[in-house]
Design a binder for these strands. Sequence first.
DNA 1: CAATGTTTTTGATCCTCGTCAACGACAAGC
DNA 2: GCTTGTCGTTGACGAGGATCAAAAACATTG
Lengths: 261, 261
Amino acid sequence: MESLVEKALVETVFGRIEANTRLVPCGAHKAAQSPGLDCCDCEIKDQSVCCALDPDELDALERIGRSQGYPAKSTIFEQGREAGFVYNLTAGALRLSKLLPDGRRQVVGFAMPGDFLGLDFEPNHSYTADALTPAKLCQFSRVGFSDMLDDKPRLLRRLMAMASHELALAQEQMVVLGRRTAEEKIAAFLVGMRKRYARIHGPSVHVPLPMTRLDIGDYLGLTVETVSRMMTRMAREKTIVIVPDGVRLLDVPRLERLAEV
Amino acid sequence: MESLVEKALVETVFGRIEANTRLVPCGAHKAAQSPGLDCCDCEIKDQSVCCALDPDELDALERIGRSQGYPAKSTIFEQGREAGFVYNLTAGALRLSKLLPDGRRQVVGFAMPGDFLGLDFEPNHSYTADALTPAKLCQFSRVGFSDMLDDKPRLLRRLMAMASHELALAQEQMVVLGRRTAEEKIAAFLVGMRKRYARIHGPSVHVPLPMTRLDIGDYLGLTVETVSRMMTRMAREKTIVIVPDGVRLLDVPRLERLAEV
DNA sequence: CAATGTTTTTGATCCTCGTCAACGACAAGC
DNA sequence: GCTTGTCGTTGACGAGGATCAAAAACATTG
């Protein structure tokens, strides 16, 4: 089932979206301009929206956007504020969360390199985006980006494919939140994080966790204490090992069994 | 906040999408052909994907699709099966649910007239769609529909807007599932259903509930018993009245306070 | 109408997870 | 070094909702 979700990024009803194979040397058109974009050197260009663009289009995109660094713990944008920009995360990790008036919080997702922010093209942000680690984002004005979509149908299709994928993930998360026990939630979370890192750094049993236990709890509908208890229990049972800033998965099959659809 | 979500259907970064104002008499091109589509007579054409199309395009759409009726309790498509079609619901209500191997179920949504099924353009269905009432759907082959998207950018934009909206709703539902009490969940559900009916039949305190208590429980991450208890409690407290096949909302402000973001 | 199955309601009991409290580990700053 | 703050862990306890059981309400069928 998860494999189906995964496939959505590659092939959809919108047709196959292959990584862009460039025919002209990139970056040839411009001198070194610091705040601007340098898409050719981008490590994750094959995993983000950009891969739907040919060199010319990439140039156009570079022109309307700029890259910006954010320190850890800084806020990229806030729930409710006017959404003037859309973003493409190129490095670091973000926490996307919604706050209830009484302080309860729901983390709706964690963004990783290649993720696009602002798929919900609403006038105001429906959640807050905070940097968990130092992060780098390409930002584009909503209107500029929207104009580009008008004559770059491949970009729109690529975006649609990403939105579809996000929707499928959101529905998976509904199952986790609504119908799984604390232990299963943690297992699903760890397996899911592992899979996401695999896309970027290749498969590994070492899973970095840049977020706090509180963040994990708010993502899974649990309290910090329950998250901590479950993780220490899994460690006691030799299913995982807790290491600084992450975990090492010892018994992946067991975790996958717990998390399985 | 909910109002922002609502707005997404009207105005997005993709530009304003106004209901189609037709300039030519519709249906003039064809004789009465029973199984085919008759989009002009469609009651909810202004609320579905179709509203992104001009008369010519609508004709093209009619040609690749066909309308089909489904009796109550029948299955439109099943989780895991190959997804050969995409659908547009024109009448009735559907339950969209995911089943875990051990029988636990999560209802990921209820579809109402105007809703599009298959936004997650994956090769296989990620959930099952069952008719709660007799239903009518326009169905289009995935490939045919995909081909249309290639030269109907407005259709693609419309679809993208709908996907964005769905994503925002899914994230709202995450908050409900993860961070709300049983009472708040029921309140959020009733207020949400009321809002959805308002789009079709206009605002009313009478909210039809075509789904069972079990369905509601599986949607909110509760058991039947809890749903029943909470609803009878709300009835006892004069917040709602339980009527055959639905509820009447007596204290909407109280419900909205319970459900508020 | 009786017979059967489904849905809803209600009660009694149980248990998972939340709440409250405290402590230890660790990093940042003075 | 000490202080302060954040984060993670652990324990004791309780509550919200699940589970189990059964009856009532309701629809469907012969």
